[in-house]
């Protein structure tokens, strides 16, 4: 989508201001001043008494610590509001609201067909899905208006559940092209810096250097594909990363390596939405918050312990909590 010149001119200084705000926010984060500001709204409950009993509910009393932070929070989060998504006329996601501030890891769990992967693809801008209502803001900017590549360049990363093969294009060349697309026109990426960084990140992920000369995902095992996704995440340094079923098809060793990679990338500048089917991954990547998605909406939210309870009680239990039946 061509961006009008004027708004491009305005965007630069605006982004500068936003980055300043981001720094203040990061400082707050590290000083522990910021707790649960702009926290996700409570999932719909059938009764208020139940909510009162729920000790896993985030501590909401701190919200009013300072209203000023609210502004920062708004500028530094991926904010999904009342999102409705349809595929071929059928509604898959039905009014989903979720906030992922930078610096936090949010796990999104749910059974098959609950709409988790659909959400991931819509965030990245896949053309096969229609957003019928709601909006998504990334650092205050309307994400849904942007082309997929613009979203990526502005800091959104999706680790695919089924990454595509790109025959003949090596990982090194692909990542270089991806990084090159982020530098201003006319500037060249410094080759030596690039390779130094690439090798450093590969070491972190326990990847052999020979990997760089292999074509992207071509003939990769399940584990190699997922590690290659995390390598790209590490190299592209996004603001928000959506990891879609990154644990699927991994044996325990591969899972540990991938988890180690993700954990090493955690920090105040990165917000992670971790989509997973099983609790297993959360033993290795411990989330700050857990959300349960059933039938296209979030039915429960809580601290990391929610995942354990869910494991024990099953999705039917989570479903019971919904205001209306998930499946009509």
């Amino acid at each position: 989508m061509p961006v009008p010149r004027l708004s491009r001119c305005l965007w630069r200084p605006m982004r500068f201001c936003l980055s300043l705000l981001a720094r203040v926010q990061a400082a707050n984060w590290t000083l522990g001043l910021y707790h649960g500001v702009g926290r996700n709204p409570p999932a719909p409950r059938s009764s208020d008494t139940k909510r009162a009993r729920d000790s896993r509910e985030p501590n909401r009393s701190q919200i009013c610590r300072s209203d000023v932070y609210l502004l920062f929070a708004f500028m530094n989060e991926l904010n999904i509001e009342n999102l409705h998504i349809a595929v071929n006329g059928q509604e898959i996601v039905r009014g989903l609201t979720l906030r992922v501030p930078r610096g936090e890891v949010h796990a999104l769990m749910g059974p098959n067909g609950s709409g988790k992967s659909t959400l991931a693809k819509v965030l990245a801008g896949h053309p096969d899905y229609q957003v019928t209502a709601g909006r998504v803001l990334m650092d205050g900017e309307n994400l849904l208006e942007l082309e997929p590549d613009e979203r990526a360049r502005r800091g959104l990363f999706l680790a695919f559940q089924y990454p595509s093969e790109i025959p003949g294009v090596t990982i090194a060349n692909f990542l270089r092209a991806a990084l090159q697309s982020r530098v201003p026109e006319g500037e060249e990426l410094e080759a030596t810096d690039y390779y130094a960084k690439l090798y450093e990140k590969m070491e972190l992920l326990g990847m052999d250097r020979s990997f760089t000369s292999r074509a992207v995902n071509e003939g990769f095992s399940g584990g190699e594909k997922k590690r290659a996704e995390i390598l790209q995440l590490a190299m592209l340094e996004p603001k928000y990363a959506v990891l879609d079923e990154t644990d699927s098809g991994l044996d325990i060793d591969a899972l540990k390596t991938v988890a180690h990679g993700v954990n090493s990338l955690r920090g105040p500048d990165l917000g992670i939405l971790l989509i997973t089917h099983y609790q297993r991954l959360l033993n290795y990547i411990v989330p700050d918050y857990v959300h349960v998605m059933v039938g296209g909406r979030i039915v429960r939210s809580g601290r990391k312990e929610l995942a354990l309870e869910l494991e024990e009680r099953g999705y039917d239990w989570a479903r019971e909590g919904a205001v209306e039946p998930a499946f009509r």
């Binding site: 801008g125 082309e147 692909f174």
Partner: peptide
């Protein structure tokens, strides 16, 4: 779409695929 998600424009993605 995969290549666009990494930041390449549609034309750049096409061109890279063909070169590959």
């Amino acid at each position: 779409f995969y290549m666009q998600q990494r930041g390449l424009s549609e034309a750049q993605a096409m061109s890279l695929s063909v070169n590959g």
